[in-house]
Design a protein around this nucleic acid. Structure first.
Length: 113
DNA sequence: AGTGTGACACTGG
DNA sequence: TCCAGTGCCACAC
């Protein structure tokens, strides 16, 4: 049986993996989707631990402003931006262009059983 | 059990 | 939308 200890982290990974190609979401959106909208920061923390899991596209998760706040935590300084641009997302100065257009809200598109 | 921390979000100006 | 300040929750020690 699963341990409810890391439930929050696990769910964060699940949602992150569900982010479609060429789309991004915010920490708050994921947190809200998990039922803890106030724990948006924890999502970032979870992503930090997700480095252990290569299956988690943390580069597709940004803050609500569309700013690549977490790119600093990536291997390279521009790695996160490179990945996003590689998916067709325009990023200028750590700021996602047309953020609203590429924004993907999990609670608006998904439902975890 | 308490303190510190954080890849955020919200509010007011 | 931006800036500054405040609140928030969960995790690590």
């Amino acid at each position: 049986m699963e341990k409810s200890n890391d439930n929050f982290f696990e769910k964060s990974y699940i949602v992150a993996r569900l982010i479609p190609y060429g789309r991004v979401t915010s920490y708050g959106a994921i947190a809200k989707y998990l039922g803890t909208a106030r724990s948006a920061r924890m999502v970032g923390w979870a992503m930090n631990a997700s480095h252990n899991d290569d299956s988690v596209p943390a580069h597709r998760v940004v803050n609500r402003k569309g700013l690549l706040t977490g790119k600093h935590h990536f291997d390279g300084t521009n790695l996160m931006q490179q990945l996003l641009e590689s998916e067709g997302i325009e990023v200028i100065d750590n700021q996602i262009q047309n953020f609203r257009s590429v924004f993907w809200d999990p609670s608006n598109e998904l439902i975890i059983s």
